[in-house]
């Protein structure tokens, strides 16, 4: 077993085209403590319903964990474990490896799928070492990073997933700062550089694309990665009714491109040929609204430049694939 050596079993059959194809059984019970309009909880529900088999879920410390697991209650209708913030990939490694040993002993018939849910802080920042180790060792797991672009559980602090120019409590805008001063880390490229068979972005606003990617990822015998855009209305400062709309505009403005890297080959899964103006995405969120003021014009231009560059880079990478 090594990263990248596996063959996909899903292929075209992984494609999700209609709600009728979805297993309607809920894996996440209602009544959890998440805020109204929580993007990450939509992501978790969609991902768990995408695949017919119940996985073992390893959950990093964060919003999803705390709102689903206050003793003596649990929202999880699948096996679930939380250990800490930075080590979900390592815990999942142990679960996966132990199941292999138990199967060899004949004590279990087969290994169950293992799915990790970790936020952007638990993935881009504090968990990246454990993630890198697990990817390199080739454990069979789907690692899902639900990205709400800051440390929301602790009160909206910036992470390395926070985009340039965004306001957070530790990247406020002022007379000197434009909001966050650094660019967002390209986590998919970092993951793909490990040579894993499958890594992709997805958004809760494009559920067919997201569910298709879950099925594809879980068909691989190796580590796979999903970077899921999951807006947080509390942290991004928008009305709870707009969660899916915000996610949708992120895709339609090319702010959050949907693509996959399958066996090293990039493919844009939702080509955005006529992008909406970036302002359509920024203006409905309090965290970006300052960028529309005259004094932050330069920062707005810088952010637009970053968005364009990313899209061009992805297009280049995807066309390199077509040229093969």
């Amino acid at each position: 077993m090594s990263a990248g050596s596996a063959e996909p079993k899903g292929g075209e059959r992984a494609q999700v085209r209609s709600l009728l194809e979805i297993d309607r059984r809920e894996r996440l019970a209602p009544g959890h403590r998440a805020c109204a309009g929580c993007g990450p909880m939509i992501a978790v529900r969609q991902i768990l319903q995408a695949y017919p088999e119940d996985p073992i879920v390893v959950n990093a410390t964060g919003c999803v964990e705390v709102v689903t697991s206050v003793y003596p209650e649990t929202s999880w209708l699948v096996p679930w474990v939380h250990v800490a913030f930075e080590n979900s990939a390592a815990v999942a490694s142990g679960v996966e490896a132990a199941m292999r040993a138990l199967r060899r002993r004949g004590e279990i018939e087969r290994e169950r799928p293992v799915v990790v849910f970790a936020g952007d802080g638990g993935t881009f920042d504090i968990g990246i070492q454990a993630l890198s180790g697990a990817l390199e060792r080739g454990h069979r797991m789907l690692y899902v990073c639900y990205d709400n672009e800051a440390y929301m559980n602790t009160g909206i602090q910036r992470s390395s997933a926070t985009p340039y120019g965004a306001w957070t409590t530790t990247s406020p805008y002022g007379s000197v700062w434009p909001g966050k001063r650094e660019a967002k880390k390209d986590i998919v490229a970092i993951v793909a550089a490990h040579g894993v068979p499958y890594a992709a972005t997805a958004s809760i606003s494009h559920w067919k694309d997201l569910m298709t990617k879950v099925r594809k990822a879980l068909s691989y015998d190796g580590p796979t990665f999903l970077h899921v855009y999951a807006p947080c209305n509390r942290g991004w400062r928008f009305d709870p009714s707009l969660t899916v709309e915000v996610a949708k505009r992120a895709v339609e403005t090319r702010f959050f491109p949907l693509y996959e890297v399958e066996n090293g080959r990039y493919r844009i899964t939702l080509p955005v040929t006529k992008p909406r103006p970036l302002e359509d995405f920024l203006s409905i969120q309090g965290r970006f609204r300052h960028l529309l003021l005259p004094q932050y014009r330069e920062a707005l231009e810088e952010l637009k430049r970053m968005v364009d560059e990313r899209w061009e880079r992805l297009t280049r990478l995807a066309s390199a694939r077509r040229a093969e």
Partner: peptide, 10 residues
């Protein structure tokens, strides 16, 4: 049936 481990305790 499935179990949850490592819950938060107040």
């Amino acid at each position: 049936p499935p179990k949850s481990f490592g819950l938060m305790s107040l």
